[in-house]
């Protein structure tokens, strides 16, 4: 276990270093004037790269992680946006695990046409682009509003309703994924000896499923949680982007120079905020690692309890 933690720590450090190295790649804009035209060219300048890196390292050495473009500490920035995202992720994970398990139970418990098609839908959906599905869902909801369905806020992060809507959208794909995992793990238990024995003794199928199959499958299910989580993070960007949820992904996306621009704003390159990118990416990496470690610890606990 200790080796595992050390290994994870080492990996984490490597990742952060890679992020810093990438984020500070020089994109120095040089303005070239030709006749009456002026345009910017991004150049690669190794010396500048060194300077930027050492500047950054020196800043960290001085105890600061940098500032955003308004001169506020990136940590304050991170705190604001990341806490929103964390709440969203939390709610979505709970929904995903709950719905996923319920669906898996339904799919394995029943063999009818509904269960089978529910299963197929679950598998098929994973092959679809999430953003397309989200757009379609949005359109359907907007259409419902026009039909007189009570309106609620679809965009942003201020209202409870938009928050929940985003959480539901976010949980959509992970719960399908989770349901598939749980279902196939449950099924892999199917043929095992103790089940046949229990069935023979007339134990109810639902009891069997929950008390035995699920309990037995728990370790392997928990092992899948980090993957589901990665899934969730990937979806998070799309959800935040499409619902204008001002969370950490959205902020990272902004810091990468993507702003809603209008005629009067400046070109995007000028908005790239390297320290912000580094901090947010580190945040997401750390999240990944934490979930990874958490799932490992959980697995260990569960297995140990079962062994004892």
């Amino acid at each position: 276990m200790r080796i595992f933690l050390l290994q994870q720590l080492f990996l984490w450090v490597c990742m952060v270093v890679v992020v810093v190295l990438i984020a500070f790649l020089p994109r120095d804009l040089v303005f070239v004037s030709e006749e009456y035209e002026t345009y910017g060219i991004a150049t690669m300048n190794m010396q500048l790269y060194g300077e930027r890196l050492s500047e950054y390292v020196a800043m960290i050495g001085a105890g600061s992680l940098g500032e955003n473009r308004y001169g506020t500490s990136v940590l304050v920035d991170l705190h604001l946006y990341a806490s929103r995202s964390l709440q969203l992720i939390g709610i979505a994970s709970i929904i995903a695990i709950f719905i996923g398990t319920a669906k898996a139970y339904f799919d394995t418990r029943y063999k009818g046409i509904f269960a089978r098609s529910s299963r197929k839908i679950g598998q098929g959906m994973q092959a679809l682009p999430d953003f397309f599905i989200i757009i379609v869902v949005q359109m359907v909801v907007l259409w419902l509003f026009r039909q007189g369905f009570p309106q609620f806020s679809l965009y942003g992060n201020e209202d409870l309703s938009s928050f929940l809507f985003a959480a539901v959208l976010l949980s959509l794909f992970p719960s399908m994924y989770f349901a598939n995992i749980v279902a196939s793990t449950l099924e892999s238990e199917e043929g095992s000896f103790y089940l046949i024995a229990a069935k023979g003794r007339g134990v109810k199928k639902s009891v069997l499923l929950i008390k035995h199959q699920l309990a037995n499958a728990l370790p392997s299910i928990i092992q899948q949680i980090p993957i589901m989580f990665m899934y969730l993070l990937s979806n998070l960007l799309m959800v935040e982007f499409l619902t204008s949820f001002r969370g950490a992904m959205y902020r990272t996306y902004q810091a990468m120079g993507f702003q809603e621009t209008s005629l009067e704003s400046l070109p995007n390159q000028f908005y790239i905020e390297e320290p912000v990118i580094v901090v947010y990416l580190t945040f997401f990496i750390s999240l990944g690692f934490l979930v990874n470690i958490g799932s490992r610890v959980m697995t260990e606990i569960v297995t140990r309890r079962r062994l004892s």
Binding site: M230, L233, L237, M256, G257, F284, G288, F289
Partner: peptide, 18 residues
Amino acid sequence: DLFLIFPFLLLVLTVVTI
């Protein structure tokens, strides 16, 4: 491991941005 633990889309975005 390094690659698999990283929010994939973000990594791509970072690289493409740069």
